[in-house]
Computed example of a mutant assay.
Amino acid sequence: MDDRHSGAPVLAVENLRTEFITREGRVRAVDDVSFSLAAGEILGLVGESGSGKSMTGYSIMGLVDAPGQVTGGSIRLNGRELRGLPEGGMRQLRGDRIAMIFQDPMMTLNPVLRIDTQMIEAVLAHHRVGRERAREMARDALARVGLADPEEKLLAYPHQFSGGMRQRVAIAIALLNRPDVIICDEPTTALDVTTQNQILYEMQTLCRESGSALIWISHDLAVVAGLADRIAVMYAGQLVESGSVDAVLDHARHPYTRGLIASSPSRNARGAPLAQIAGSTPSPLAWPSGCRFRDRCPRATDICATAPDTDHEGGHAWRCFHPVFEDAGDDCHDCGDRDDREEAP
């Protein structure tokens, strides 16, 4: 699926495929994923656990460990192909032109080193500047993410910070060299709502000011709705729908996207049980043939046993034989009326 939007892409992912060879068989964790990202743009990559969204981020960063490997497709950063780039070349780009913020900030921070040591080294690894200049850059980065008294924070160790403060430091490190692309893997999931909202606002502001493009990986549509410019929905290793926030949330075409929206507590009447998507995500060792959502989809017909093509409506794209054209703001429980499936568009 390929989103069309204005602006030269700073990141272009085409037909990305990542596989794991296990004793049980071949696992295709990411399968034929395509999207592009312009400078300063924020893309929300959403889906259930196991949908492949985090693995997509790791694949772009070149952080897929054996027995996994990127086996197909193209990843271009400012026109430069990253797939097949030697580890030394990727190491030069990571933390400089492309950075990742993890759900657990301790995947970024070394617990036995002071913050200034870690941040200064992150600068010196990519820039020929003196240590004093590197320290100034580190202090400025901490101030940009809203940490009070950044000079004092530079002298602290990670264990002296709260979870929210550690995550802010991890974000500051990612922003140090003003990368072209930042990938955020649910970095606010473990934080309280107030801290989460502060970090979301700061990330949005920093991207607008610096021009960095952002991929925000999340299972929370509400978070993505307030942050992103576009949304891409993943299911079973594939993108099933993508488009602007308004297009995807207000006019969702794919039954899976509509199921995610309907399961949001804000979409249910007070006291009413939450809407649910029937069944569970299939095993990646045995993806269904054709449309991977068909075993859970109330609109599925025989044709869904073959792989659907991607349809477009402007910048809105979906991968479905039977897209839904009612307003997603309406009650969508009737979208699963099996008596009308054969007439579905």
Results as ranks from 00 to 15, higher is better:
A170V: 05
V181N: 05
G237E: 01
L154I: 05
P255E: 02
Q160W: 06
E202H: 07
C320G: 07
I199A: 07
D2T: 07
V245D: 04
G211V: 00
L93T: 00
I183S: 10
W318I: 03
L227H: 10
S283E: 00
D2H: 01
G95P: 07
E136R: 12
H322C: 08
W287Y: 13
F293R: 01
L109N: 07
G163H: 04
L155T: 09
I60W: 14
G130T: 15
P282E: 12
F102T: 02
N78C: 03
S283A: 02
E202C: 05
V64M: 02
A148D: 07
V169H: 01
P345C: 01
Q204S: 11
A134Q: 12
V324G: 04
G72W: 04
R91K: 08
G130M: 12
E48D: 13
E241H: 01
L214K: 11
G50S: 12
L113N: 09
A174T: 03
L16H: 07
S266M: 14
I171H: 10
C304W: 06
M234C: 05
L249S: 15
H316I: 03
R253T: 00
V245S: 07
A143G: 04
F325Y: 12
V240Q: 03
G57N: 11
K153M: 10
D302W: 12
S264G: 13
Q69F: 00
V70T: 15
P187I: 14
L113D: 08
C297L: 13
P288T: 00
I171Q: 10
D302M: 09
E313F: 05
T71A: 15
N177F: 01
T281W: 00
P345W: 00
G50Y: 07
G146C: 07
D140P: 02
A236C: 13
S218K: 10
M107I: 09
S242A: 08
M119L: 15
D140K: 14
E41D: 11
A307Q: 15
L221K: 11
P255V: 09
G315A: 15
G84T: 03
V240W: 05
T205W: 14
L77S: 11
D295Y: 08
A141R: 08
C297N: 09
A305Y: 04
G226V: 14
R139V: 05
P179A: 08
D96Y: 14
A172Y: 09
T205S: 13
R76Q: 12
N268R: 15
G259Q: 08
S242K: 03
G259Y: 09
M107F: 05
